[in-house]
Simulated assay, not measured.
Amino acid sequence: MTPLDKPLRRELTIEGQAYTLAIDPNGLKLTLRGHRNGVELSWKDIANGDAAIASALNASASHGDG
Rank of each mutant, 00 (worst) to 15 (best):
L32P: 11
N37P: 00
P3K: 12
D65L: 15
D45E: 13
G27Y: 09
E15I: 02
S60G: 10
E11D: 14
Y19R: 05
L41Y: 13
G49P: 03
L12Q: 10
I46Q: 05
K6V: 09
Q17T: 15
P25T: 06
T20E: 13
D24C: 01
G34Y: 12
P3W: 02
A47K: 09
L4F: 07
N58T: 05
I14W: 10
I46K: 00
G66D: 12
S55R: 04
A52E: 15
I23A: 11
R33I: 04
A22D: 04
D65P: 10
L30V: 10
W43R: 09
D65Y: 15
A22H: 01
K44I: 08
N37M: 04
G49S: 07
D50G: 04
A22M: 15
A18I: 03
T20D: 14
M1Q: 05
P7C: 11
D24S: 15
R33Y: 13
S55C: 04
D50F: 05
S55G: 07
G66S: 11
D24L: 07
I23S: 08
D45T: 10
D45G: 06
N58E: 15
S62M: 15
K29I: 04
Y19E: 05
A56I: 01
D24V: 15
L28R: 12
S62Q: 15
L4G: 07
Y19I: 08
L12V: 14
L8I: 11
L57K: 15
L8V: 01
T31L: 01
H63G: 01
N48T: 09
N48G: 04
I53A: 04
A54H: 09
A52W: 11
G64I: 01
R33S: 06
K6P: 00
R9V: 05
A56W: 00
A54T: 01
S42Y: 08
G66N: 11
